[in-house]
Amino acid sequence: MGIPDRILRMLEEKKRSGCPVKPQSELYKDLSFDSLSFIALLLEIEEIYSIVFEIAEMEKCLRVVGLIAATERKVREKAP
């Protein structure tokens, strides 16, 4: 499964709102994530892909499209 599909599926499973997951969805505002569930999500993504998000990079992950792009970028960066 590609990165976008996997992350979308994770968001569908973890969101606590009835809003559909769309590229422009905001994790906090639309999908009812809070700080802890947001960090738990990032840590899970890090484990799956063996990557590490720096603190400043986490801000780019507050929107679905940004989260997917940041994950893809980190995976590309670690590739030999």
Binding site: E26, L27, Y28, L36, I39, I55, M58, E59, L62
Partner: peptide
């Protein structure tokens, strides 16, 4: 949105000395 970045940036910008709140920030 309360994120680690917001928390740390706010402390630095305002020289925050005290925090009261959820222990989740410790986590």
């Amino acid at each position: 949105a309360f994120t680690p970045e917001l928390f740390y940036k706010t402390i630095a910008a305002h020289r925050v000395t005290h925090y009261e709140g959820s222990p989740l920030v410790i986590t």
